[in-house]
Design a protein around this nucleic acid. Sequence first.
RNA 1: GGGCGUGUAGCUCAGCGGGAGAGCGCCCGCUUCACACGCGGGAGGUCACUGGUUCGAUCCCAGUCACGCCCACCA
Length: 805
Amino acid sequence: MDARYNPEGVEERWQQTWETEGLYNAEPDASRESYVYAFPPPNVTGELHMGHALQVSLGDLVMRLKRMQGFNVLFQTGYDHAGISTQAAVEKQLEREGTSRKELGREAFEARVWDWLREYGGKIMFQFRRLGASMDYRRERFTMDAGYVRAVMRFFVHLYRKGWIYRANRIINWCPFHETSLSDLELVHVDVDDALTTIRYPLADGSGHIAIATVRPATIPADVAVAVHPEDGRYRDLVGKEAIVPFTERRVPIIADERVEPEFGTGALKITPGHDPVDFEIGRDHGLPEPMVIGPDGRMNDAIPELAGLSQDEASERVLAWCRERDLIEKRESYRHSVALCERCESRIEPLISLQWWCAMDELKRPAITALRERRVAYHPESQHRFAIDSLENAPDWCISRQLWWGHQLPIWTDADGETYCAETEDEARELAGGKELKRDEDVLDTWFSSALWPFATLGWPDETEDLKSFYPGDLQTTAREIIRLWENRMILSGLELLGDVPFTDVIIHSTVLAPDGRRMSKSLGTGIDPLDVVAEYGADATRYGLLKMSSTQDVRFSHGFIEEGRKLANKLWNVARLILTNAGDAKPALEPRDLEERWILARLDATRAQLEEHWDLFEFAAGANALYHLTFDDFCDWYAEAIKPRLQDPTDRAVRATALAALERLLALLHPVMPHVTEEIWSQLPDRQSRLIVAPWPEPDERFSADVQALDRVQEAAALFRRSGVTAKLDGDERRIFEAVVRPSRVKADGDAGAEIERLRKEIARAEGMLGNERFVERAPADVVEAEREKLARYRRELEALTG
RNA sequence: GGGCGUGUAGCUCAGCGGGAGAGCGCCCGCUUCACACGCGGGAGGUCACUGGUUCGAUCCCAGUCACGCCCACCA
């Protein structure tokens, strides 16, 4: 028999078995408490990355634990239509085919996206299964399936009727490539080197000029004012006068506004409400006009005939040339600043004024803030909880319309007179309109608008389904830090608004897995590592274990070392199980502990169970994985299995074999949430199986053995002493027998150095005596600390005596 | 500019008020009948720096230096 555990085939077999036997299935059940986790639906365009695999590892751990603990578990799965990302991916494909979405037209384009989804949609579910995610795959949902669309429409109409949805002409982030608006949260910022040009604007009364600095001379023709800080002594006399904008030679007012930073540039700011967010605000407050010179394609529009159709760079050159001829350029210097890019295509964002739909947040977010303050939802760790509250408190109104073709089209219709109607369906809208001919708004909703409904739209809302009654509110959510504002907070507020309760009670913010070199894992940088490659090499169990060990700090570099550790653990477990099973003979698992090492391992198993519950209740996954590693290697294999081995091979000693089987059962149960496949595989070979391990009960606390946790301390001390010094301590009975079985002098070359050990002990004794001789330590340190120090001193003295005879 | 976080063994990371830890790597000894993906032993750390609190600080507090992430309207 191969001495190595090979997860290949074993894992896939169990994944299939669990699913076909319906063990992942969740059904409403009033008699049991439910535990619900709606896994964040990945973008349908993508494949799972390491972050998803980490999320599956810790989420599935919790689900398997809760399932064993008797909860009615629902692990919801599905994927997201991911508006802009999907549209971008399909557009790229069209580009390769030499066509474009505009050439195809909207209907044909949407059909292409659906084709695309059919081709790639199953991949994500395959990856979930391969990681061992115990999701109810029958319940797979898509954020644009028919039922989901109804939920999204209902939510929109609900908000509309509350008066929280409105249309406004405001400055927004515009992606000139996708030709759509974007929320602030869909941008990335990068530092770029630009030229900062200082240009003199002549004063209208001929008394001089005022200099302003700009990185975008192309926007000068859209200037409507020059602003200075009200306290700025240099310009106080100019406020109220007029300046002449270069190139267009229009007269504009010089105004005072506190938002101008006197320290920057010349302290004077040109106001371009059409193309800058700050200027827009200032312009609105001062009642200024809002001309625009840049169009939706990012090129100059025809507002200024001489510049029409030019790129911004070309337009800048024209404007600068005009200024140069008139000696209006004071200086030009290089300047590094941060600019906003579209996170999908990295085009430079154009701030433009545009008519968009907005969702007012003030009323909507209030109950969510209260729920977070009252900890009806808790983010872990605590620092992220505070961040979540801050983010909600500062959440501005939400621009929810996008000028895309892929997504949930807004349920807004307009009649010939421009009157708008909001209803869930076109029929209802027509009824509202008294049968008039209607045209539907072409915009679609921000993809996060539908994501916000995930915890209950997946349960059948807006219908009052049995699922909803049984499984709402849910329990768990997990996410990366940057998603808190986009998604978790919005799920909380939508749940409170529509169902009157929070959708979950705990949100785990997990670490980001970085590439081994510390950079972000990214396909374009070539630093990505595909979780399925890791699974293929090490197995899903080892991968899950390794990722759990990487889940505990903010950012972790991906390290194969942790996965290796997982593979070693699976292998060790497999082999010790082989030892017990091949010697089991006719024994059946039964708790019949007689001897020291048997009571001891049962106590250790129970102590570890308690430790695991403690760690996992606090979502400390790495610590739990660590405890399992040492339980298996140190306690179970190195001590317990070695101690019973001589008797295990004795066919007449049925009790020791029965207890070994029972101890192995418990070990498997504790390991199952982390390593489901190898544990189920071994479990299936135990005699007298009643059920699958996945639905076996989690071990109950067992008082009988708790006193025996330290039972082997003396033997372990004796072993350490022997290995270091070659001296055998005096032991009797069970202790002597275990010592000989485990330490087996024949296996250990007793080349220890008694002299070095004596020296070490003398040093320790001197240290302990020093501490206990310090009156202030004895008086002020906690009693148990002092007592522990006394015990140590006594032990060192005993050991020294044993060595020196 | 604001917020969060990190600096511990060659590497990746635990620990976080009372004797410096794990895995990998390295050195030495073992084919031993569950496992060489193993067993036993070992080398290797002024726990970033400076102050403070404490009987006692890697751990708590303040500051410094480095690094990372998120957010932000200095044109």
